[in-house]
Design a protein around this nucleic acid. Structure first.
Length: 480
DNA sequence: CGATGGCCTACTATTAGGCCATCGGTGCAATAGT
């Protein structure tokens, strides 16, 4: 069977979306592949189809439990029973039973953390692995150095599994991130399929706001004005909750908040209500997004500036997946970056804490003030790295901390410059991905865009007739 | 770092203002206790 016949018979599609064919043919040709495909192009097909043409199991590394569950469900809906998610949802006995008969499964989903467990690795080594997939591969670069260090150990695990044919999938990764992905996965010979980072149907609007309090008013005005559904991003949990309450107070009833501090049940509920159209507006932190496959999101508002451009692009990229016009609005007050600065500082153990462990030999759990989970993992991970490389623990840890803080500072400055720049927004971010922008309508606030195009539909008719010049001016130049 | 909230003070009614403390993102796995 050809891949086109497989596409039709197994998946019921008559044609591929951009990048799918290239990725699949590359894999079937036996070449390691890194594919950067636009959001919503059906990345899972890129490994599901080859899975049926190759003998052996497909191991998929996924960043979130909810993503694994979604994938498992999707495959089961299609009638594929040989699927398992190896994660902490499994009972001890269930997990052991699954590990004993792992060869029964065609698709095995797991987290990078799970891949570090000796019994899991042992079971995987006894397996014929047709394909090793890293989904959302930019996480390697984004999280692998501090937040989830097990991401940086994927290459080692891959080697221990006999360096199977590998596919790395992502939607946003510039040259540096792609190089990082190749290095961390220990891939030397890789075929890359990189599609444009540009999303022409998403207009980019940045709005300068005089003072922080004014943002609330502007947010309400935008939310009342724009066609829903939409997502509003905040850099803090509390501000997300407060804004959701504020919107409700002002008659935006189909709104809710979402962040990592909520229990799993609540998070799942909000996510489902949003996907089903029972909620129009979600006020969220960066926790909301990965795996949100909603086609008709019409706007993304940033109440705070994200910590880096890549995060910004990922977040606005959740709008307009149906290809229809969508808008992103960033409300900016100079100083918005301070919170990210603080968060970055507090992510790492400080000098004193490092010294207590590396020089006075204290157990990381006895350090005062106590280490956060992230700080503790950071210390333990790099202490281990130093030992393996025969380096001084304290030197390596201090060095890594300093370099990472510098890197984050550079990313923040880059984001701030982009916001404060007078140039075309789109051309600038595309240049960061080494792409040239072509002129387009409804580009950005620098090139000109008409917010009225994104107005709520039921008001559109009245708007065209009845809107007077004051109202129109207020939309275009809100500060007057 | 900086925004916010609670508390106290001033001084006689309600509210304005100063001071200090607090808090701040992303998730895996495993554990303990209901």
């Amino acid at each position: 069977m050809t891949i086109d016949e497989h596409l039709y018979q197994t998946f019921g599609f008559s044609s591929f979306r951009p990048g799918q064919r290239e990725t699949i043919e590359s894999l079937l040709g036996g070449r390691h592949t890194l594919s950067m495909l636009p959001t919503g192009t059906g990345k899972s097909l890129c490994y599901q189809l080859p899975a049926y043409m190759l003998s052996g199991s497909v191991v998929v590394v996924s960043p979130l439990l909810s993503l694994m569950q979604d994938q498992v469900e999707q495959l089961k809906m299609k009638g594929e029973k040989r699927v398992i998610a190896l994660n902490s949802f499994l009972q001890y006995k269930e997990k052991n039973a699954a590990l004993l008969r792992l060869d029964r499964y065609k698709f095995i989903f797991l987290s990078p953390e799970m891949l570090q467990m000796p019994n899991v690795m042992q079971a995987l080594r006894g397996l014929s692995i047709a394909l090793f997939v890293v989904d959302e591969a930019h996480c390697i670069s984004q999280w692998g150095y501090d937040f989830r260090p097990d991401y940086s150990l994927l290459g080692k695990a891959r080697t221990q599994l006999g360096s199977p044919l590998t596919l790395a999938l992502t939607a946003t990764a510039n040259q540096k991130v792609r190089a990082d992905i190749r290095e961390k996965l220990r891939l030397t010979d890789v075929e890359e399929w990189v599609f444009s980072v540009n999303r022409p149907n998403i207009a980019v609007n940045i709005e300068m706001v005089e003072e922080p309090l004014q943002k609330r008013v502007r947010l309400l005005e935008w939310v009342q004005f724009l066609q829903a559904p939409g997502i509003v991003y905040f850099s803090g949990r509390k501000s997300a909750e407060e804004a959701a309450a504020y919107l409700k107070q002002h008659g935006i009833n189909r709104s809710a908040f979402y962040h990592g501090g909520m229990d799993a049940g609540d998070r799942l509920l909000i996510q489902h209500q949003f996907l089903n159209g029972e909620i129009d507006i979600v006020c969220a932190t960066s926790a909301f997004g990965m795996g949100i496959n909603k086609e008709n999101v019409r706007f993304v508002i940033h109440y705070h500036m994200p910590a880096q451009i890549e995060a910004y692009l990922q977040e606005i990229g959740r709008a307009g997946r149906d290809g229809k016009p969508a808008i992103s609005v960033l409300l900016y007050v100079p100083g918005d970056e301070k919170l990210h600065e603080f968060i970055a500082e507090s992510e790492f153990p400080d000098e004193g804490q490092i010294r207590q462990v590396t020089e006075y030999g204290l157990h990381p759990r006895d350090v005062q003030p106590p280490l956060s989970e992230t700080q503790l993992r950071f210390l333990v991970h790099y202490a281990k790295t130093a030992d393996e490389q025969g380096q001084s623990r304290s030197e390596l840890i201090r060095d890594v901390r300093r370099k990472l803080l510098e890197k984050k500072a550079v990313k923040r400055v880059e984001m701030k410059h982009w916001v404060e720049s007078k140039d075309c927004r789109r051309a600038a971010y595309m240049q960061m991905f080494h792409e040239k922008a072509s002129e387009q309508l409804q580009c950005c606030d620098r090139c000109g865009l008409d917010p009225v195009l994104y107005k709520m539909k039921d008001r559109m008719e009245t708007a065209e007739k009845g809107m007077d010049w004051r109202e129109r001016l207020n939309i275009l130049l809100p500060e007057f």
